[in-house]
Structures are given as structure tokens and as C-alpha cells.
């Protein structure tokens, strides 16, 4: 039964795609802040965040869009609390994203991926995993206001990021 459902879903997507397949590209910039909790640390620490995201190959069929975003995020160091602070770091990531346009004005995007995290001040790095959801409001046809909410997970650390930004969409029909 599961296989048949999967087959029907694939056929549906192919047929749907053949009739209304279109390509689009997205470029977004958002700023916000990040709350980080590290194991053994006393509190959640906060940093400023600036993210640039490019999605050069978006594939749209009907109200659905699948894309592969490439992300560049910069996080500032946190204020000091009890002699410790969080080091500034940069994330360079790639993800798989899915968008669904509920209306012409409102689209919801979810994505999952991973990032190479670099701490430039101390010559160190790690890998982080990202789950993100963002609401996109389209006041104009090709531009949107975005509200991203990210969860970043790496060894002994969980972080949440909220932001506000703008998005430019090139090509594709909604």
C-alpha cells in the first residue's frame, strides 16, 4: 500500500510538473539574533546574526517549489557573562528546501541542511545541522519580507535564531 501511494505521488508530481514546471532563483538577506545553549554553560548566550542565502536552482510545480539554498551566516560574539562569552563564528551551509505558496501573498518555506562552522578568531571549526522554517510575505510580485526561524544543532550545543529580512525572486510563476 505504501509503495502504491508513493508511486501515485511520484506520478502526480511528474504530471503536475510537466504541465506547470518552472525555474526560479531566490536571493535573501536577513538579520536577527541567535540564542545559544552550550552544555556545561550556565545560561543561553545571545549573538547578532546576519545571513545571506542564494537559491540558484528552484524548481516550481503548481504551488510547490523545491530548491537547494547555499547559505552564508555571520554570528557576532556574545556579551560576557561571568567571565565567559561565545566566540564569533561563520556558517557556510547547504540545504534542501521546500516551499508551499498558500496564497499569492503568503508562502511557507522549510529546509534542512548542514553547515561548516568556522571560528576565525581562534582557527577552529565544526559541523552544524540546520532545520529552518520561514514565512514569506509578498507585497510585490518578486520581492518578499521573510521571517526565518532556525534551529542549529551541533555537538553539545543547541541554538535558535530568529530574524527579519527581504527576499528577491527571479523567474518562475507563483
Amino acid at each position: 500500500m505504501k509503495r502504491i501511494s508513493l508511486l501515485f505521488l511520484t506520478l502526480f508530481l511528474i504530471v503536475q510538473g510537466a504541465y506547470s514546471l518552472s525555474y526560479s532563483a531566490y536571493l535573501s538577506l536577513d538579520t536577527g539574533y541567535l540564542l545559544t545553549k552550550i552544555k556545561d554553560d550556565e545560561i543561553m548566550r545571545s549573538s547578532y546574526a546576519l545571513s545571506i542565502e542564494a537559491e540558484p536552482f528552484g524548481l516550481s510545480f503548481g504551488r510547490n517549489t523545491i530548491s537547494i539554498p547555499i547559505m552564508l551566516s555571520f554570528y557576532s560574539s556574545s556579551p560576557e557573562y561571568r567571565y565567559y562569552s561565545l566566540n564569533a563564528h561563520n556558517d557556510y551551509g547547504i540545504a534542501l528546501a521546500y516551499r508551499y505558496a498558500f496564497t499569492d501573498l503568503f508562502t511557507l518555506k522549510t529546509q534542512a541542511g548542514l553547515a561548516y562552522r568556522h571560528y576565525p578568531d581562534i582557527d577552529a571549526s565544526t559541523i552544524s545541522f540546520l532545520i529552518s522554517s520561514s514565512a514569506e510575505f509578498y507585497p510585490a510580485h518578486y520581492t518578499a519580507i521573510v521571517l526565518p526561524l532556525d534551529i542549529l544543532i551541533t555537538k553539545d550545543e543547541v541554538a535558535f535564531s530568529i530574524g527579519l529580512g527581504c527576499l528577491v525572486r527571479l523567474g518562475g510563476e507563483r
Partner: peptide, 10 residues
């Protein structure tokens, strides 16, 4: 070199 850590110490 220095200790690679997410936290910096004052």
C-alpha cells in the same frame, strides 16, 4: 596555537 573552544574566557 590556542585551545579550540566555542567559549572565550575573560
Amino acid at each position: 596555537n590556542t585551545t579550540p573552544s566555542k567559549l572565550d574566557m575573560t
